[in-house]
């Protein structure tokens, strides 16, 4: 019974759903298309429900961490999450408190996220400064040269530097960078196909613990 409920039944459902959706895309049959659209709609609903589960899981984890070292941060996180939840619920009701929700998003969340994101620039610049220190090899040297060309080539420098540096950057981006990105995208596509096939045949069961 355990084998049936934990292995056979989930694998059967996953394989059947995958095959039906794939068939709905491949075969122009209205029945299969309807089933495909309905299954995709179910996936969207389940994804939305996953946000709710994630929210309560966040609360549970940080409630447990409040008793440990650094519990103050968990307390602030829980307090902020609950406050934002209440504001969003009130805003969805189209009440006068909607203004508070908008103000909270525009003047609290947006600056905080922008600040954290801006720190990435400092981290990247520091890493670039220590590039040769940590990796003295050909790859690092190529990376350094490429970064310098893109960085400086983006700047609208006046002639004569800007006249030959901008085309160089353009070539670098359209040829070398695009080649690399395409190779990356092809790898991603092949990987996605392979993972899909493994799930369809039951080799990978991300929906099951076994």
């Amino acid at each position: 019974m355990e084998r049936l409920t934990q292995r056979i039944l989930p694998a059967s459902i996953a394989i059947a759903a995958g095959i039906l959706v794939l068939a709905g895309y491949l075969l122009p049959v209205p029945f299969l298309t309807a089933i495909r659209d309905e299954l995709v709609r179910w996936a969207v609903i389940l994804a939305a429900f996953a946000w709710i589960l994630g929210f309560f899981n966040l609360l549970r984890v940080h409630l447990g961490q409040m008793r440990r070292k650094g519990g103050l941060y968990s307390f602030v996180l829980i307090l902020s999450a609950l406050f934002t939840l209440v504001l969003t619920l009130l805003a969805s009701l189209n009440t006068p408190l909607r203004f508070v929700g908008d103000w909270w998003f525009q003047y609290v969340l947006s600056p905080l996220q922008a600040t954290v994101f801006g720190l990435i620039a400092i981290a990247l610049a520091t890493a670039a400064f220590h590039l040769i220190r940590n990796r003295r090899e050909v790859g690092a040297l190529i990376f350094l040269i490429s970064a310098l060309i893109v960085l400086i080539g983006t700047i609208p420098l006046p002639a004569p530097v800007g006249t030959w540096l901008a085309p160089l950057r353009e070539w670098w981006m359209s040829v070398l960078a695009t080649a690399g990105i395409r190779g990356f995208l092809i790898g991603v596509g092949l990987g996605t196909l392979l993972v899909g096939l493994r799930v369809l045949v039951g080799l990978d069961r991300p929906y099951s613990e076994r």
Partner: peptide, 29 residues
């Protein structure tokens, strides 16, 4: 915005060149 961005990119490029020169001459740890 473009002026600030240009200056920042120049500064970062200078840091990269400086760091490469320092660690190439001084050796790696």
């Amino acid at each position: 915005y473009l002026t600030s961005l240009g200056l920042a990119q120049l500064a970062v490029a200078a840091l990269m060149i400086l760091g490469a020169a320092v660690f190439l001459v001084g050796g790696r740890n």
